[in-house]
Design a protein around this nucleic acid. Structure first.
Lengths: 192, 192, 192, 192
DNA sequence: TATGAATGAGATTTCATTCAT
DNA sequence: AATGAATGAAATCTCATTCAT
């Protein structure tokens, strides 16, 4: 699956992202994907196992890129806890605005329940945020008895805000409000 | 479409909830639904327009029940803001634990983007929580510049916890933790 | 696979026999089978797994009927060796003329190499003829050092004569000539 | 279509023989043939019209070689009838053991019913054996009322033995047994 | 000449929906 | 009202064939 033209492979993935973002899986025809990518229908099968394989590749590679993006934003591990959390949020929101279709598909969560590679990515992403909180707990900056829960909250929040954005919400406001609530919510001394 | 045996109709919905919770829409066959509900396949068409109609009914009625549950919990409008928010959270979590399959389907968000009735329900649910926060703002108990976002936060928190529950999380713990974070996050005093 | 209407199942098999007899497997479309059987295309899948399953069922059941036909012809086990062999040949030729399409498909031998049920039937059919020859050997009527080989010869001969019949050949002549050659070929005292 | 490298053409035919011997026509992909012959898929089309053309060439040329082989064995026309028949049998069995795959494909009889060139070859092959028997009849060595059927018998005998060989059968035994049965079956004296 | 990526016609198969019972 | 056999439109997928390199 590494032969052939990687650029064309990516074009197919891009086309698929646009279509899967706009319609649920079963309403996207491979004919449409081929037309959107301006290739023949059979060509898809040179690059992907089948329709589900294409969908999974899209999500897997998107998830992997998202993890990398968040990791890159948080890269300075010595940084302050709040900086690291802000970086994580920035990474998530930045990814969502740079690849809105892909993010939409990834977050719709269909078909992906039990793919091991995806579960690994999900745990990796959660791990990045959890670790920041745990470090904060140890450093005495935060006092969060349920870091996993807070992590899910951050991820769900960004998801919700990006998929169903309230009227007039900017990325900056979203980021700011999330950080405010988060800071107040789990800081050691309730911000006092 | 509303006559016939309401109990049988509900059995079909229950069966559908179980299956749609476990698999994406296009992997659930009406044959499966009929078998799960122990009725003939044709019977589904006596109670529902078609497959999508069944799915929409499931979500619509679930959403409507959820709104009612939350509303019932919050019914005393004069109550303290925190009591009202706690009641809302109680309503959400209670519903999610009583109807886990249904909640899972409702929160997966597939196929439901543009149904007007659903949008109304969603706004109604959000409205209940938003109104409590706005009342809190006016009463000087809370100081939240973005009630809609905070509402989204509450819903996301429950969603994340229910769909991807951390090991060993109980409903009581979830409720408690959410209320702690919420209180710290938007209480007036906290920003004093 | 035993539910549904067995008569309709047989009609599908009959239609398939006609088409598979006239064209090789890959040139027979399920559309054609459905049209020939005057049913909808999907109905085939109610009665058979898939195209190959239909083909296999056709051959398996044909083979089973052929074995029964030959067995029935030979049913008197005390009979003279030559009578039994003549009966076997009669059974083969009779089956071939009663079900020419089916026989043609069965003998074309495509796709059937490694089906266990078919191998069993084939062995059973061979066994009937072999046993007659071995009994003949023991009774001192025949002296055939290779009963299996002779059995294959009988089967191949009938196959060849039926699939590629020489100009002007009648079933009676075929039967007569085969028996003459066979009798002379393996009788104990070379007919002396 | 006859230029290009004859050795490569033969390699393709050999690869095709191996594959067509193991699987029915429609299960052999040109991809497989190309891989087996270690050439590019497009190259096949330089040497053959299309897939069916390749298959027909394989059988035609195999049949032609078989006829030549049998002809060569029988080349002394003045020889004794039994010697000529033994030579024919020797030619058939020798060919079958030297080219088992090719023989298997040729004898499976798929797709070749109405090719004129093949029919000519078939008649030629039959003719060689028939002529020997007719000469034997005229010379008073044999007394066979149905030389065509006897020819069919010889061909069937070899076919059956090669396609479904009994345990432990050698070419020599096969040849010997066939000649014994044949001699008894149609010798003049035998009917005296 | 040789290749194998690309193609798309056309095959198999699925499954929501219908309807005779 | 209830059923499930029957249907066929429409989907996925295959693979012989082409053609730019």
């Amino acid at each position: 699956m590494q032969r052939l033209d990687p650029a064309k492979r990516q074009e197919i993935l891009d086309a698929a992202a646009r279509l899967f973002a706009a319609r649920p899986f079963h309403e996207v025809r491979l004919d449409d994907v081929a037309a959107e990518a301006r290739i023949g229908k059979g060509t898809i099968y040179l690059y992907f196992e089948d329709k589900e394989g294409l969908y999974l590749s899209l999500i897997r590679e998107g998830m992997s890129r998202l993890v990398n993006a968040v990791e890159a934003q948080m890269e300075n591990p010595c940084a302050d806890v709040w900086d690291r959390l802000a970086a994580a949020v920035e990474g998530l929101i930045g990814f969502a605005s740079r690849f809105p279709d892909l993010f939409r598909v990834m977050r719709s969560g269909a078909l992906t329940a039990d793919d091991p590679e995806l579960q690994r990515s999900r745990r990796e992403l959660s791990g990045l945020i959890e670790r920041a909180i745990r470090d904060g707990n140890e450093a005495g900056q935060t006092a969060d008895p349920w870091p996993e829960l807070t992590t899910q909250f951050v991820l769900s929040f960004v998801r919700g805000a990006v998929l169903y954005p309230p009227e007039g919400l900017t990325a900056a406001t979203l980021r700011h409000h999330l950080m405010v609530v988060l800071r107040r919510g789990i800081a050691k001394e309730a911000s006092a």
